[in-house]
Design a protein around this nucleic acid. Structure first.
Lengths: 258, 258
DNA sequence: CTCGTATGATCGTCTGACAATCGGTTGGTG
DNA sequence: CACCAACCGATTGTCAGACGATCATACGAG
C-alpha cells in the first residue's frame, strides 16, 4: 500500500464563513468532505501540528475531531504515530459494500412503508436529476452529487434518526471508493436503469422487490468498484495518487471572529 | 423520558490495574462497560468535571473519550449542555434491532463461508456454555456474558475487521437493551433452542438457513425487548432507574503509576 | 558493514485560563 | 400574588503552553 506522504498540502481551499456553530463540527465536516472526495488520499498522514496550522484551530479541537473521525472509521491511528486516512483493503471494501447493501436495502423497505407521497415524488425527481447529469456526461463529482441526492431522499423518507446515523457512517466510508466505481465505463448508465427500476418498484409499493433491486444495484456497483480498486492497488509504478504537486497552503482559517 | 440526574455517583467500582496502554482507551472501555450494564443509566448526564474527579484523568482525556462515545452513538451531546447517556426511543430501539439483524445475519453467512473447523467447534462450545448458564438460572449478567461469547466466536470466525468494527458499534448500543430482553420469562430458554438450531445449520454448511434463523432469533429478541422497554417507559411512578443511592465515590484512579 | 546511540518528530496527557451559553434564582413591579 | 427581567452559577468550548514517552532515522564507533 502507498505510504503516500507527498501530498500533504494543497487540499484545503474552501473559505468557509464563520458560522455560529461548534467549531469542531466545522472542522469535522471539512475533513470528512476532504476525505470523501480524495483531497486527502487514503494512507496520507494527518499530523496534528499541520492540521492546527492549516485550519487555524487549536490542537485540542483537532484532536477531538480526530477522535470522532477515528470512531467513524475514516481515519486510523497507529499508537504514538498518529492518524492516517483509512486505506480500506480489498476485503474491507467488499465488506463495506455488503454492509451498505444490507443497510440501505433496509432503508428502502422503510421508505416503502413510511414515505409520504411527496417523498416518493421527490425520489422520482432525484432519479431524473441523476439520469440527466449522467446523460450530459458531466464530471464525476457533480454526478456523484446528484447520486447523493437520491440517497438523501431515501434516508429522509425512511424517517429514522438511528438508521440515518448508522447509514451515514457507512456511506462516508464508501464515498471515497465510489468515485472510482462511478467513473467506470457504462457503470453510470447502468445505474440509471437500475435506479429507475427501483423507483418504479417503490412507486408500486413493492417493498420486497425494491429492496432486492437495490441490493443488486449496490452489488453491481461493488463489483466495478472493487475491480478498479484492485487495479489501482497492485501496480505501483503508474502513480494512482492524485495531486502530488506540493502547492503552497491557502491557510483557510475556520476560526470565527470573536 | 427520565431526566435522571440523581444517580450521578456510585457506579464506579472496578480497581482496574495500571496497564501500559493509551489512557483514553482504558477510560473509554470503562465508560462503555458502565453504560452497557446500566451503571450509567440512559438519560444520565455526564459532566466533564465529575468524570475528571472520579476517573482521575484530565479533562482533555475525558473530552476525547466523550467524542468517541458520541460518534459511537452511546452518548448524545446537547450543545453547550454537555453529554448524556443516549436514551434510545422506542423507534430507535426497533431500528437498532433491525440493523443488528441485517448485520449479524451477514456475519453468520460469512462465518459459514470462512470459518475454520475449529471455530465451528468453538461455536458449539459457546452455545453449550450459554445453555448451561441459562439452565442453572444464573444471574442475568453472567448469562449475558456467555451470550456475548457466542457473538464473539461468530465475529471472530467471520474474519473481517471492517465487519467487526461496525457490528461492535451496533452491539454496544443494543447491549443496554438486551439486559431487559433476556430477563423476560422464557426468553432465555427460547434463545437456547434457537441458537442450537443456528449452530446446527452452520454445522451443515447451510449459510442461507443459518442466516435466516439468526435473523428470526434477533427478531424474537427484539419483540420481547421492545415490549419490556415500552413498559418501562410509560409508567413513571415505579422508578425503573437503578441505584438511586448517592454513595460516596470510590475514586477509582485509572492513571498509571509514573 | 553492523550495531548501539544520539536526535528529532509526534503523540499522549496534564494544567490552567477565559469567554460564551444555558438554566435557574432572585428581586423588582403592576 | 403573578409575571417579567436582570443576575449568577454551573458547564461547556476553545486556546496556549508544557513535558515526558515513544518511534524512526541518521550517525558515528567498532
Amino acid at each position: 500500500m502507498p505510504p503516500a506522504t507527498p501530498p500533504s498540502e494543497g487540499w484545503n481551499s474552501k473559505p468557509l464563513g464563520r458560522v455560529a456553530a461548534p467549531l469542531r463540527e466545522q472542522v469535522g465536516a471539512l475533513l470528512r468532505e476532504a476525505i470523501a472526495d480524495l483531497r486527502l488520499v487514503p494512507g496520507q498522514r494527518l499530523v496534528e501540528r499541520e492540521l492546527v496550522d492549516q485550519l487555524g484551530v487549536s490542537r485540542t479541537t483537532v484532536r477531538e475531531v480526530l477522535r470522532e473521525l477515528t470512531a467513524e472509521g475514516l481515519v486510523s491511528v497507529v499508537p504514538n504515530r498518529g492518524a492516517v486516512v483509512t486505506a480500506p483493503s480489498l476485503e474491507d471494501a467488499r465488506d463495506l459494500y455488503d454492509v451498505r447493501a444490507s443497510l440501505e436495502s433496509l432503508i428502502v423497505e422503510r421508505f416503502c412503508a413510511r414515505a409520504a407521497r411527496s417523498q416518493v415524488l421527490r425520489l422520482g425527481a432525484a432519479v431524473d436529476g441523476f439520469a440527466e447529469s449522467v446523460a450530459e456526461r458531466q464530471d464525476i463529482r457533480s454526478v456523484l452529487v446528484t447520486k447523493d441526492r437520491i440517497y438523501e431522499v431515501l434516508v429522509e423518507g425512511a424517517g429514522s434518526a438511528a438508521l440515518r446515523q448508522i447509514a451515514d457512517g457507512i456511506q462516508a466510508r464508501v464515498r471515497m471508493l465510489r468515485a472510482t466505481s462511478m467513473s467506470a465505463d457504462g457503470r453510470a448508465d447502468a445505474s440509471v436503469d437500475e435506479l429507475r427500476a427501483i423507483a418504479a418498484a417503490i412507486e408500486a409499493k413493492d417493498a420486497v422487490a425494491a429492496a432486492s433491486l437495490y441490493r443488486d444495484h449496490i452489488q453491481a456497483a461493488s463489483v466495478t468498484a472493487l475491480r478498479n480498486l484492485k487495479q489501482s492497488l497492485s501496480p505501483d509504478p503508474p502513480t494512482t495518487t492524485t495531486t502530488p504537486t506540493t502547492t503552497t497552503t491557502p491557510t483557510t482559517d475556520v476560526r470565527r471572529t470573536r
